[in-house]
Design a protein around this nucleic acid. Structure first.
Lengths: 204, 204
DNA sequence: GTGTTACCGTAACATCTGTTACGACACTCC
DNA sequence: GGAGTGTCGTAACAGATGTTACGGTAACAC
C-alpha cells in the first residue's frame, strides 16, 4: 500500500525514510492539536493512517519516535532559514527574516511553535532529549549571533551576545504567547514587536 | 496525621486548604523534576506523602489538580510581584525587578519556569486550561504595560504595547532557554540581556 | 453507651499504555 | 515449483492510569 515501486534494485525494500517522515508528521500533528499527554503510539498510528505495528517496526520505541520527529523538524527549519538567509540581501534583512519565521505569524508557524513546546515539555527529566535540545538550540543561537555581528560590525562580542539572546528569547517567547492567545498577539502585533525590538537595538 | 488540632470549634474539620497546598506543591515538584508525562495521581500522592485516596478526596479529578496548582502558583507570583513593585522606588526599577523575577536566575525560579511550561504543555488542546492561561497572562501583560507606560510617560500606546510585548516575551523566552541550558545562559547572562534590552529601549 | 458525621486509606475497576511475539503475505532467487 | 527474506498487521501481555466504591476510624452530640 505504502510501497513505492522504484527501481528494480530496491523493489523489495519499503521506503523506510518516507514512512518515518509520514509518522513524524503525525507526531507533529498530535503534538500541536492534542498535546503531549495524548501522544501515544496508537494515536500516532491512527493519525498516520497505519497500524501500531508499522510504527514500532520503524522506530525502536516511543523516545526514538520523539527524537526523530524533533530532528526532522529541526532539519526542515534549518533548510528554511538557510534559504531565507541566502535570499535576503543584507544581514539586517536576514536577521529580521529568520527571527520572523520563528514566530507564530500564520497557522503553520503557530502549529510549529506548539510542536517545539511539546518537545521541550517531553524533554524535562530526560537527559537524552535535553542534550538534543541544547545542541540544536546552540546552533540556532550561534546563527543569530553571527547575523547580529554582521549587522553591527562595530559591536563588541558581549554586546552582540546580549542582543542576540534578547532577540532569540523575544522571538521564542512571542511565538509561545501568540499560539496560546492569538487574539492578544496577532501577526501584526508580533511583527510590530519585532520591528520595535530591532529598532531599539539599532538593527532595523 | 495531617490533622491539625486548632480551636475546639473546628476540631473535626481537616484543613482542606493546607492539604490542597501540600498536594499542589507536589504537583510543582513533579512538573519541574520529571515532566508532565510523569504527573500522575499516584506520583503526586507519593511526592506529597499521602495516599491517592486523599488526593482524590481533595480534588474532583486530575484536571482540577492541575488547575488549582496553576492558580496557586499564579497567586504566589502575584504577591511576590506586588511586593517587589511596592518596595522599589521608581517605575523603571520596578519594571526591571518584576521582569527579573520571571527569569531563571536561581534554582527556585528555574524550577518555576519548568512548572509554567508544564502547565502550558498540559493546556494544549484543553480549552479550560487555555482560558486559565489567557486570563493570567493578560493580567501579567497589563501589569508590564502599565509599568512601561509609567516608566516612559511620553510614549504613545502602540509604542508601549510593542515594548511591553518584547519585554514579556524576552523574559519568558530567556527563562525557558536558561532552565534547559543553564551553562549557556547563566544568571549573569540573563541579567546582562535584561539590562541590554532595557537600555536599548531607553528604559534603564 | 448509641447514633451520626466527616475523614481517608485500600482495593477494585475498566481502560489505556508501551512493547513483544507471532503469523500471514508478497516478492526474489534458485 | 520451493526456500528464503523483508514487510507489517493482529493480538497478546504486563504494567500503569484515572476514577469509583466500600469500609473502618475517630470525633462529636446526646
Amino acid at each position: 500500500m505504502l510501497r513505492q515501486r522504484g527501481e528494480r534494485a530496491i523493489a523489495r525494500r519499503a521506503d523506510h525514510g518516507a514512512q518515518q517522515e509520514r509518522i513524524s508528521k503525525a507526531v507533529w500533528s498530535i503534538l500541536a492539536g492534542k498535546g503531549i499527554e495524548h501522544l501515544t503510539i496508537r494515536s500516532v498510528a491512527a493519525e498516520a493512517g497505519c497500524t501500531t505495528g508499522l510504527v514500532m517496526h520503524r522506530f525502536p520505541g516511543r523516545k526514538a519516535l520523539l527524537a526523530h520527529a524533533r530532528d526532522l523538524l529541526h532539519a526542515r527549519t534549518r533548510v528554511r532559514v538557510e534559504r531565507l538567509e541566502a535570499e535576503t540581501g543584507t544581514p539586517r534583512a536576514a536577521l529580521r527574516a529568520i527571527l520572523a519565521q520563528g514566530m507564530a505569524l500564520n497557522e503553520d508557524s503557530a502549529q510549529e511553535a506548539l510542536v517545539w513546546m511539546g518537545f521541550l515539555a517531553a524533554s524535562v527529566g530526560d537527559d537524552d532529549l535535553i542534550a538534543l535540545h541544547r545542541k540544536n538550540n546552540r546552533a540556532w543561537r550561534d546563527r543569530v549571533e553571527r547575523l547580529v555581528a554582521d549587522a553591527a560590525p562595530d559591536w563588541g562580542p558581549a554586546r552582540v551576545r546580549a542582543a542576540a539572546f534578547a532577540l532569540v528569547g523575544a522571538a521564542e517567547g512571542a511565538a509561545q504567547l501568540a499560539c496560546f492567545d492569538p487574539e492578544s498577539y496577532s501577526a501584526e502585533t508580533q511583527e510590530a514587536m519585532l520591528d520595535s525590538l530591532l529598532d531599539a537595538y539599532g538593527l532595523a
